[in-house]
Amino acid sequence: MKKSIGNILALYPTPAVVIGAAVNGKTTWTLVAHVGIVAHDRISVSLHSAHYINKGIKENGRLSVNIVDENMLPKADYCGVVSGNKTDKSRLFGSVTGAEGTPIIDESPLSMVCKVEDVYECNGFENFICSITDTYADDSVIDDNGKLDYNCLKPVLFEFPTYSYLRTGSVIGHCTDAGKQYKESIAE
């Protein structure tokens, strides 16, 4: 039997990402776990309004979303420990300039360059609603058909209630297969 545990946000784990943007013409990075899908070509990035990087995102209307894998986790976690107000994080990662001059992380296996379409403020957080203008993927995460291979990507996941990083698991099935099998089992 289920019991009420309160109004707990229970949609974790989520992928850990490092957001990149320019503030006063200089690249900065911050670790974020509050990202979400809004539509097939839109995402949301939620940052507390006190974050240093927010100024640059609002000024430039652009940001990058860089998937964190285990190799880059120590640097990514560091981005969440120090503030851009006090620490220059511009050289923390090797980076290149993506679409529209947006900084992307070389060592991230997958980076998306995004244009801010809207900002929704809620409870001290600025939620950037973004369209994806370009996606950059390392060869190691692209399959023979030119598609992303999430078995190779292996993003680090973040679980907020315990502040833990998790590994992705194995494939348990293909979308719609279980539903079709269930449908056949109940067919009269």
Rank of each mutant, 00 (worst) to 15 (best):
H34Y: 09
S46M: 11
G20E: 00
L47A: 07
C114S: 07
Y78V: 00
G6N: 10
P15H: 07
V18L: 03
M72S: 05
G36C: 14
N54W: 04
G173L: 10
F125N: 07
A137Y: 04
S164I: 09
C130S: 06
Y182W: 15
E117H: 05
A137V: 07
K58A: 14
L148D: 02
T97A: 10
N71P: 00
T97D: 07
H51A: 12
Y136R: 07
V23G: 08
S64Q: 01
V113C: 06
N24V: 06
T133E: 08
Y120P: 08
I132W: 03
N24H: 11
A22S: 14
T97V: 10
I105K: 00
I53G: 01
R42H: 15
Y182Q: 12
D118E: 14
S46D: 06
I67V: 11
P13Y: 07
I142C: 03
V141Y: 01
D106N: 13
K180H: 13
T162Q: 11
E188L: 06
Q181G: 10
D77W: 03
L110Q: 00
A22T: 15
K180M: 12
G146W: 07
V45H: 04
S4P: 14
R167F: 12
S64H: 04
Y150G: 09
G56K: 01
T30D: 00
G101L: 08
K75T: 02
L47D: 02
V96R: 11
G94F: 03
R42Y: 15
S170I: 13
S64A: 07
N60D: 09
V17N: 04
H174A: 10
T87K: 02
H174R: 13
V81D: 05
P109L: 10
N123S: 12
S4G: 12
L148E: 03
H48A: 15
S131M: 09
P161Q: 08
N66A: 08
S108F: 05
E59G: 09
Y136Q: 05
